[in-house]
Design a binder for these strands. Structure first.
Lengths: 192, 192
DNA sequence: AGCAAAACAAGCAAGCATGCTTGCTTTGAC
DNA sequence: GTCAAAGCAAGCATGCTTGCTTGTTTTGCT
């Protein structure tokens, strides 16, 4: 009762998947308040009743969606190719511009107000954040034993977050590219 | 009709002010969806009817609140003291940690989904962003005629935004201080 | 002091999202 | 082929927020 049990039928699993994907898309496009279960169900191509069969309450649905977003983001992270530092910086920043980041951003802001979501989303961000930092250090070929290197990389990721946030309203890819180019150079000097 | 006319009575102006301040506080604490006009009116200490007398529709209220936030942020910006670069960086970052930034963040995210808000909030961010950049260049004593300096400062402000965003869920002032110290050093080298 | 206008308070109807309940269809096993 | 269980669809009741409408108090001016 209440425990999310592993689905036993293929159709059910497919529907669950579609519902979660639709939930993430709705979050990215219409935000938290606009992501009503009717909207998610309609986008997933199922009835609202079906949605509430898989996720009895709206909170259940988006609790699962949080995990889904975390999984997708980790997956995108691991798909990053190894290149020169400028390309790596650009690729990292690109992680914060897609619909996945938009959905995550909506979840962060919603979690800052909804008690129920806060703990789960905080855990998500901690986990994904650690993964991101680890992979960033690896891809940038940074030596974390040197003092300041850890903070430099953290600042870079914070800058990427900020660029993604600025990208929420106005799609300023041109400005972003210039900033990325400049700071990739500064970073290259700082990391040696 | 519909045009927000200048209030003629002192009590009215005070109530308007309290309503706007309460709207900003509600935004920062309870987000966009949670900032119902009842909540704002209660926080302002007036009845809901009074709130709807001053702002006939909810959109009117928060349209005015957007302007209010922009004004407050510009004011906070101009109050920044001139100090050494590390202190200036810390002060700039601090601009992105208070309730004003939280309210602005809620507005950004809400505006990314609500058509009506988007244009106004976009204009707000453009204006405040320009002011912030200008004052940052001035306080940092940066020579924008040198290539790359403009992008360097922009990247710093983007990092500040990202730090503020990270601060939304977990109040990690310690990490922020370390990142600020490190990036202040990087910036000092880059600006010469 | 009186008066008109503004400011404020309270109640009412409409719209919407959620959660529950009921009934029908599909699945997979015997 | 049948049957029980899971998946799915639709309708209903509740609670909440908004906007409007009506009535009362306060303000500023003559």
């Amino acid at each position: 009762m209440g425990v999310v049990t592993a689905p036993k039928q293929d159709r059910s699993r497919a529907t669950r998947q579609r519902l979660l994907a639709a939930a993430v898309a709705c979050l990215a496009e219409q935000g938290w308040a606009g992501s009503t279960v009717s909207a998610v169900a309609e986008r997933a191509g199922v009835s609202r009743g079906a949605a509430q069969h898989h996720f009895p309450t709206r909170e259940d649905l988006f609790t699962a969606a949080v995990e889904y977003v975390a999984e997708e983001r980790s997956q995108a992270l691991r798909a990053l190719p190894t290149q020169d530092r400028t390309a790596v910086v650009a690729a990292l920043v690109d992680l914060y511009t897609g619909p996945l980041f938009r959905a995550a951003l909506q979840l962060w802001v919603a979690a800052s107000n909804e008690e129920q979501l806060r703990s789960r989303v905080t855990e998500l961000e901690a986990r994904v954040g650690r993964d991101t930092h680890r992979i960033a250090v690896q891809l940038l070929n940074a030596d974390e034993s040197r003092p300041g290197v850890r903070e430099t990389v953290q600042g870079l990721l914070d800058m990427a977050r900020g660029l993604g946030l600025a990208n929420l309203l106005t799609d300023d890819a041109a400005r972003r590219d210039r900033v990325v180019a400049q700071w990739a150079g500064l970073l290259d000097e700082a990391l040696g």
